[in-house]
Nucleic acid binder design. Structure first.
Lengths: 210, 210
DNA sequence: TGTAGTTTGACATTTTTTTCACATAATTTT
DNA sequence: AAAATTATGTGAAAAAAATGTCAAACTACA
């Protein structure tokens, strides 16, 4: 049972903590204090302690935090201890790039297949997968217990695809189409808008220039 | 001359406003009130007005906002009226996907070339571009007045590439490598961490499940 | 075992962000 | 042309988030 009452300002920082802690662990660091971590991550030590204490606190006075333990605990909070299967819908450039991304499994995600509506790409290879036709989706999602749909189709088709996969039972959508998708309460949507990130960069460049 | 004193909580919302306004404009909507926009975007009308008023206010009492005008003004604030050239460094899956992305030019970005350190991919075609070798970068950035470097190389190489392009004179880095890149004051960095977005989705799914 | 030094977690304070509420001004209707 | 409606921009209030502080608790080392 997980606490639903934690502000998203806090939970949005967790993945970044997780990334830094994974790196520290990988480089053999055993313990770290909020002060050291704050210097690496460019946030205040106070915020780090406050964030962690939201989940009960994982540190020890006079010692700091055990990197391995902290990493595991944050992983659990993020739900990375649960293996989740996902499908990619849309075998265009973004869909292909995501299909070839090797980092999913490290974080508990298992790519199960890639789908497209265009007959001419069905059967073509993307990484180690063969592109499947859309009508297979319904069956596959139910049969293989697919939890997440990655939507990488054109804007105009995205909401229809979302409605479809929600109906078939996915609990999460990772959306790369240029719209904010809507979904029923049973399904969580995470919209990724690369263009917005680029515009933000443009803004920051403009400000600096002036 | 642009106001540097506006909080990033506000400026981070501008790209999303811009996206919605572009869509409205494209579908022929001429005017919109903060109330209508707030319903579409699922934010409060008050926030919209407050955000816009940071830049002087673009609306008219009793009427609302002129979509075309508002879109143009926000575009200017974001610096989208200035055409900026960019290069992609790293011709892997992400680099290729970005190179094939058609939306850059619509927002004032002009892809100038794609580069890779691996000799075996030099010269191969990516979209309408031919992959160039890294040593060409220095010359090309200066000659073609490249402003932005998109970094899509492996984690361990990313900081070196960043240092390099900063030295050659780029003013912005759009980073897809799994590290937070550091750069001198002359260069703005926008880190895109797709895995963090996916972890955030995982968290939200977990919370819902419990 | 005792003591000096370190570091957390909690709480108080400050700062930032969001929301509310309304005076003002334009539009729209009658 | 007047009245009714609409809707902005702003200053003030409320809420949320970040930061500072410190007692308590542990570590480390002699």
């Amino acid at each position: 049972m997980k606490d639903k009452g934690i502000s998203s300002a806090v939970t949005k920082r967790l993945p970044r903590y997780y990334r830094y802690l994974s790196d520290l662990k990988a480089s053999g660091v055993e313990r770290i204090s909020s002060k050291e971590l704050s210097e690496k991550m460019k946030v205040t030590a106070s915020q780090i302690r406050q964030d962690f204490s939201n989940f009960g606190g994982f540190g020890q006075q006079g010692y700091g935090y055990n990197v391995d333990n902290l990493c595991t605990e944050i992983g659990k909070i993020l739900g990375l201890d649960t293996k989740r299967k996902l499908v990619i819908i849309g075998a265009g450039h973004i869909g292909q790039a995501l299909a070839n991304y090797q980092g999913f499994s490290k974080r508990g995600f298992i790519l199960s297949g890639i789908y497209d509506a265009d007959d001419s790409v069905i059967g073509s290879r993307v990484g180690e997968y063969s592109v499947k036709p859309m009508p297979s989706l319904k069956e596959d999602i139910k049969k293989d217990d697919i939890k997440i749909a990655v939507i990488a189709v054109p804007k105009h088709a995205a909401q229809d695809v979302a409605n479809m996969v929600c109906e078939y039972g996915v609990t999460g959508i990772w959306n790369f189409a240029l719209v904010d998708l809507k979904a029923p309460d049973s399904c969580v949507v995470e919209n990724v808008h690369l263009v917005e990130s680029l515009m933000n960069l443009a803004y920051n460049i403009s400000v600096k220039e002036s």
